[in-house]
Design a protein around this nucleic acid. Structure first.
Lengths: 192, 192
DNA sequence: CTCGAAAGGGAACGCAAGGTATCTTAAGAT
DNA sequence: ATCTTAAGATACCTTGCGTTCCCTTTCGAG
């Protein structure tokens, strides 16, 4: 496009430009307003190039999202509350650039392909793996901050579950909500 | 359609037939596969009739869903656990005919109209109003089953929040999940 | 350096679905 | 009996998806 003809990107470079275009289009028009032609134009390429890589819009967006987020590392702040707060903030940050409508759109359009839909749903669960919470809790038990006892899976996924609920019901997760989830629900339950 | 010409439905009767057609189409093709023309044909009417009533697919589906579900009545089983179980099952039953993809589709397509989107989201929160849980909890406090103390909003919406999370993450809410949410999370917290 | 395979990019197409306009005709009110 | 309102048929325009054809560029093998 702005490049003079003669520069033709290929492979990973081109792909990166496409992903960037997807992010921009999502930010600008939302999922419903994202069109393949729009992405192609913004990336300075053409529709066939996109269709050679991904079979449809859902796969394209999914790939772009996957390319964009980095993994969460389990923090060690010295206190259980600090660790959990950091973990929950990390989740929100990962999801931060993604608006709910993108997730909904992805899930709606993938509904026809059950295996792909399952993948997308799994990723929704794996944003904050159960083990990461378990790590932080075990560490707190080691410090004597918590009594050592078995924790059910549901207890460990509680923070993420509530964040997800908030995200879907409100469309956003503000810092106050995180603290409420932590201090009113999660911590009291873990301390039992 | 199968009616010989000369029978022409109007008003509420026609509307009911349209809603029925929407439910059928949703059940058969899902949200993504529901088309206005398809609904019109199945209802034995035509597109303009639909567009005279609702501006687009999202509003049509929303109206059809709204027409279909009946309110939840706060139960009185004699025990807190029984009451909450009944309440949660009622929620799942209300949502029972609605698959997640319908909710996602609705939310995706309404994203452009912010006020409408807010309405849809509110309804997602109001499936189980906070007051209904409060009623049941207060009753338990009256019986001496629970210590009387102030309960935060988040504590009261906890059952619904977790059901919603389950529904979105798994696509379904089975009875076992309800019992887990109740016995591992909600009840222990309320009993503190 | 040459050449051939692989990939990019432009343009057009068919198709499905959204949404609209027009017109005829039935239903129901007065 | 007549008049107003709304149903329903049909045709139409538009947008966007997904695909095809074909030409051009780039890369790498030799």
């Amino acid at each position: 496009m702005s490049d003079s003809p003669g520069t033709r990107r290929r492979g990973p470079v081109l792909e990166a430009a496409i992903f960037a275009a997807v992010w921009d289009e999502l930010a600008e028009h939302g999922y419903a307003g994202l069109t393949i032609a729009g992405v192609a134009e913004r990336a300075g390429t053409s529709k066939p190039v996109l269709y050679r890589r991904w079979p449809n819009r859902a796969h394209l967006v999914h790939a772009a999202l996957a390319s964009g987020h980095r993994a969460i590392v389990p923090p060690d702040t010295g206190s259980l509350r600090g660790d959990l707060l950091a973990l929950m903030n990390a989740v929100v940050r990962v999801a931060g650039d993604v608006t709910p409508d993108v997730v909904w759109g992805l899930l709606t359009e993938s509904a026809g392909e059950s295996t792909f839909a399952a993948t997308v749903r799994d990723e929704l669960v794996d944003v904050l793996p159960e083990e990461m919470v378990a790590t932080v809790v075990t560490r707190a038990e080691g410090r004597g901050e918590l009594a050592a006892r078995p924790r059910s899976a549901r207890e460990l996924t509680l923070p993420l579950d509530l964040i997800r609920s908030e995200f879907f019901a409100r469309g956003t997760v503000d810092p106050g909500a995180i603290e409420e989830i932590l201090d009113q629900i999660t911590l009291p339950l873990l301390r039992q």
